[in-house]
Every structure is written in C-alpha cells, then in structure tokens.
Design a protein around this nucleic acid. Structure first.
Lengths: 225, 225
DNA sequence: CCTCCCTAAAATGTTGGACAATTAATCGCA
DNA sequence: TGCGATTAATTGTCCAACATTTTAGGGAGG
C-alpha cells in the first residue's frame, strides 16, 4: 500500500479523501461527499472510490449509510479488535508479551496519577472492584476486571495511553478470562485491586509499585506451563 | 461492518475468505484463488470480491500482485500504524499527549534494557545518532532521530511495545520534524542521545532517567506557545 | 547447449454503465 | 396538524470491457 513508486489509484483516492477531511476540518458525524461527487473531484471512477471507502471502513474511520452517504466515525477500537482477530494467534508468547507491556505502563502510572486522581475516580474504581465479586460468570468478571484497569489508565489523563489500552482490550480481556478460569477465587483479584487502591489513597508510591507488580505477576503465573 | 442483521455481500465474502484460509490451512506466502474464481465460488461478482480484498489489505493480511494473485502477508504492523495515523488528528494537544506517552514508556525502559541490551545494539544506535549530523535536510534528520528511539525501544524486546511505537511513528516523526525546524542545531539532539547512550553503557539508571527526561522535555518546549 | 530477448497469457487495475435496495425528505390528503 | 404514500438521492451489487503488469515460455543467435 505504501510502497511502490507509483501508487495505485485507490490508494491515491484514500490519500485525497484524508486530505479532504483535514482540509475541511471534518470530524466524527460529518458526512463525506457522495461517491459520484468524489469520483468527479478526484477524476476517477465510482468503483475506485468505493474500494477506497472499504479501506476507510476497515480502519473504522467511516461507515456508509444508504441515502445519507459516508459518515465519519470513531470505531477504531472495533477496527483494531478485528485486526487483532485477523492477525494474532493468541499464543503463550503473546500473553507474556502483553503482560510485559502492562507492567511497563501501568506500574509507572503513579506520577501521573498522583496529580490527577480524584476521590470520585477512586470511589468509582472501588465500586467496579466490588462488583467483581458478585458477577455471575467468569466472562463478566473479566469484563469488570478490565474496566478497573481501564479506569486506572484513564485517570492518568493521557489520551494516547488510553487509546492504546482500549485497542488492546480484546487481548487483555482474553488474558484475564483465561486467568479467571484457573485461579481459585475472585477474592484474590479483588483484594489485590484493593491494595492498589489503598496505596493510591495514601499516595504511597512504593506500595503502589509493589502491589501492581504482584498483581500483574500473578496474572502471568498460570500461563507458564 | 459487524452490526446490521443482514450483512453486506462484501462482508460475507470477507468472512468466507477467512473461512477458506482456515479450512485450507493457508499461511503467509500462500496465494489465494483468483478474483474470478472466488467470485464463482461465493456466487458473487468480481467487484464484490475486490472490495473484500480491500478489507484484507487494510488489515495487512493480504497484498495482491498482478499476474500472481493475492498472497497472504504479515503486515499487521503497517496496518496498525496506518490505522493509528488515521485515528489521531495531529494537534498541539496530540503533540503534548504523545510526548507524555513517550515519557511514560521510554523513561521506564531501563530495567528491560539493562538485561537485554547488547554491545552491537549500542554501536548501531551510535551509528544512527552520528548520521543525524550529516543528514542533508530536516526530514532525513527526524527520520534518523526516530530510528534512534525505535532501536532503543526495540532493544527492550517487548513486541507489543515495539508495535505500539511503530504505530505512532508518523505522529512522533512529525513532532520531531517540527522540533528540528525550530531548534538551532542538530548538535544538541545528538549530544543528548549521546548522554543517553553513555548512561546505558555504564548501566547507570539515574543518569539514564535524567538524560531521557531532559531530552523528551526539550522536544516539548518549542510547542508551548 | 546456453543465453537473451520477445511474445503471449494470466492475473490484477481501472473505468463506465445499469439496476436494485434503502431511506430521508417531501408532498398530499384527511 | 398529523400521517401516510411518493419521490429522489445515495449506496449496494453486478456486468462487461479495456489497460497494465508480470510471469512463463519459446525462439533466435551465439
């Protein structure tokens, strides 16, 4: 797509559409010109424009509705999920890799959190954590588990980090689900989360790193076989 | 793409192609049947199959070569990179945000690097760093600058992190380019890189964090206006 | 017998046109 | 005013034709 001295007409159109979006300052919810208009603007055919649209749809940038046209969307997470489901064989290595990434990021959130974390966010996380105990199945539990960590990351206030974490959601959650089915009780997870929250309340950096390290490490143990 | 009670013909074909790949156990390098064959197999038209291929290409799963046909590839990194560059509009906020993300990750690489870093990797980074001084224009300089940091991240040996960094490439590099046009000389950048390398050679954690912090902070200064 | 060039064929790349399907908007009627 | 039918705009799908690229093979010349 990006190589080759002469780009294909479709890729050209993709680029021109992106230019159009930037130029006109279009955002989520705005509609693009119709396929025939774009074909005329870019001096290509409607089929070519359609193929270009397919690329945008695959990236979760646009979706098309009949009669209305193509509207810009913000479905990158879904796109990333699909990409992952296409791409990655969720292997043992991938699990370990993801967990390593989480160690790198989540364990170092403290400095950001110390400034930005509000009491409200803390209580919200406590609520989510408590709900884990009452969840009916492992599926639901891992969803709440992810939500807990997502809130933590969100509270750090860095959009790039949040988006990255959101993209990894399907993988991380699957990792969590695998953990839930093997570890004996949810109580352990909830207690570890509780320790993390306690450390945050006290603004205790050492304790935060310690508990986060143990928590993330625990998620890795059962994979080793 | 994934919603709607009745899926579109194109999405149907995408699903069927995926099924075909799984069923036949096709892997990277294998070629898919030709467009007309697939159209016949799935009882649809060639254009529909082509649009389906566009989706696969966007996901980095396949690329097509004339006369040969569509071959399965493993270009997910590029796909993720493109997706990300689509997703993020480059704004001042985004700049600051990305730099914050880099602080979070790159400053905390030390523990991983301390174990895995080889002399060979270090000398390679030194070479790239030296090349920055002799680059003919700012474009090339920021490319090398990015390459320096990419090597650093790569050396940490975490695939998820590497992929994430790769995804952010267009944004980071643009940030670097903006910096190059404003800061007086490239010497400063190269010197800062040199300090980082020196700290790594000595396995001096404090020095590494210190110099990395200064380096990343410097990149942010000129944006503040 | 080997090498090089030329040609042909097979596949994708692009275009134009036609019709179906969907749905927002409009018009007309009560 | 409100509601239902009609209309029109736009995407969805398919077909057919031609252009382009590239592999493969064959033929001429050494």
């Amino acid at each position: 797509m990006q190589l080759s001295n002469r780009a294909s007409a479709v890729d050209d159109v993709v680029r021109q559409i992106r230019g159009l979006i930037r130029e006109r300052g279009l955002g989520v919810g705005d509609v693009l010109p119709s396929e025939v208009e774009l074909a005329a603007m870019f001096d290509s055919s409607r089929n070519t424009v359609r193929e270009a649209f397919r690329t945008l749809k695959a990236y979760g940038v646009a979706e098309s509705r009949q009669k209305v046209g193509a509207v810009l969307t913000d479905q990158h997470q879904n796109a990333m999920r699909d990409l992952f489901s296409f791409a990655m064989e969720i292997s043992v290595d991938a699990f370990r890799d993801i967990q390593g990434y989480r160690r790198l990021t989540e364990m170092n959130l403290f400095d950001l959190l110390a400034d930005l974390l509000t009491d409200q966010a803390l209580t919200e996380m406590e609520a989510v954590n408590a709900a884990i105990l009452t969840s009916e199945d492992a599926e639901r539990a891992s969803e709440l588990d992810f939500e807990f960590h997502r809130l933590l990351v969100e509270a750090a206030g860095n959009r790039t980090l949040s988006e990255t974490y959101g993209m990894l959601k399907p993988v991380i959650q699957r990792l969590m689900l695998a953990g839930k089915s093997q570890r004996l009780t949810l109580e352990t997870v909830v207690a570890e989360h509780g320790d993390i929250l306690e450390a945050l309340r006290c603004r205790d950096r050492i304790a935060f790193v310690y508990h986060m390290d143990r928590h993330l490490g625990a998620g890795l143990e059962f994979i080793v076989e």
